[in-house]
Amino acid sequence: MPEIDVGTPVSQLVDWLTTHLGPFFDAISVVMLALLDGVLYLLTAPHALLMTVIFAALPLLARRWGLALFALVAFLFVQAMGLWVETMETLAVVLVASIIAVLIGVPIGIWAARSRGVSNVVRPLLDFMQTLPVFVYLIPAVFFFGIGVVPGVMATVVFAIPPAVRLTELGIRSVDEEVVEAAHAFGAKPGQILREAQLPLALPSIMAGVNQTIMLALSMVVIAGLVGAAGLGVVVVRGISTLDVGAGFEGGLAVVLIAIYLDRLTGAFAESGGSLRGLMRRRPALLPEATASTPSAIAGPTS
């Protein structure tokens, strides 16, 4: 049995990339840090209590009173545990990573939905990304970007892209084929069909993908903490490494609280986003009898 050495070329490639594309990675690093700092600034500049009120107000846009109350209690509790800044750092990482993952994943999903070939290539790639143990690419990421928050975000992005791609593709593919045919039959261009029929009708599925992406990103924060991404991950890692079970538990609890909050919030927006137009258009109940009494020329008894 000939021995095939896969490891050496890979590590050589990583070496080559670090030496030759150093400036490129540095640039990414700088942009990423600026982005994270910006988001973190937005989250921490206002007083914690004000932010708590804002977090509690967001669900009200989708008329979720229960979730608003939960947010109020949860974020006050986080402050009481003294983990406010760490929680906001984590939130910044999750937001930035999720936005990047969605910006990459959704277009790929659209592309895959439109081409069998792309779909056949992308699918195993996604499996690969999701099943490859995280540390395997977390370490090269540290080589490229150095210790800190950036490799954490990068690893998180890689991990969180697949659901965005998958659910976008699924959503577009499961749009009623006859409806798409109808758009073709009336002479619409492919781009127009995508914008006006496929994407709006796939929106619930795409939003479910966004929700999944955020959840996966959140599940990466502890691991990102290992490579020095500031936030709750660091709290948990420190708690474990110093055998301070209580501190670790506090960090974990804060993660769970924002996970529940983000999950319900995106879920609520996904639901109301899908039917928002319907809600706005719903007229005061129009009784079928009322219209049947004024039939127009050709109206049959069906109307």
């Binding site: 006859e178 409806v179 109808a182 039959a185 009336f186 002479g187 009708l201």
Partner: peptide
């Protein structure tokens, strides 16, 4: 031609629900 000359009515209506 599809737009102006030849149109179609579908079995399951195929209306745009939104």
């Amino acid at each position: 031609v599809r737009n102006r000359k030849i149109n179609m009515v579908f079995q399951h209506f195929a209306l745009f629900p939104h």
